[in-house]
Design a protein around this nucleic acid. Sequence first.
DNA 1: ACCCAGGGTCATA
DNA 2: TATGACCATGGG
Length: 228
Amino acid sequence: MSFSPSRQQLRQVFDLLLRDYGKQGWWPAEFPFEVMVGAILTQNTAWSNVETAIFNLKQAGLLSQRAMLQAKPERLAELIRPSGYFNLKTDRLNNLCRFLQDSGGECALLEKTTAELRDALLSVNGIGPETADDMLLYAFERPVFVIDTYTRRIFTRLGMAAGEESYEELRHGFEAGLGPHVRLYNEFHALIVRHAKEVCNTKPHCEQCSLVKICLMGDNCQREISGN
DNA sequence: ACCCAGGGTCATA
DNA sequence: TATGACCATGGG
């Protein structure tokens, strides 16, 4: 397997998305810790559900590393219930907080190289490749390209990827093709998600996919759109 | 009633 | 290494 898109190919997709949707200004959060919490809460979960959970945490004053560590797990679980997998995610949030504490806070992490920081995040139970990369790009502003199911799906259906590539292969392909540009990675991933929400999550699925002419709906939807 | 959602871990073969 | 089970709420 290999994924080696050219810079031109990638820019073409990016430009189409940007022209239709404009800048997205991600991540939808006010400070880095909120980004990290959101990255965990949104695992396999609709963002609308995460918004409710984050709102609850803010209301309760638990949207900080300290407060979250001091809160009783049952209380934390109840607050994040709307985001699903609430028991699992309660543990994962605590793992994140303990990691930040043991690392000497977010400031100490700024000293690390991107590779070191990525390995450190991945060593936390409950933080996998995408969650780590969300944090690296949107909280730490490191040039790491985020791969999610939409990214894999759209580039497979565009014919640029085979679909069997590993997470790391895809990430490397984007980073090699585009070069290390935080701003670009930020907008690109945000636009991919925006396209998925805006166009293809509305039913009937495929008819409205005028932009990249590819359906991003679930794996059952194999149809491509032609014309226009 | 069914499918989907901005994944990740763990047990098994 | 590669599948499968599991986690769970809310919207279309």
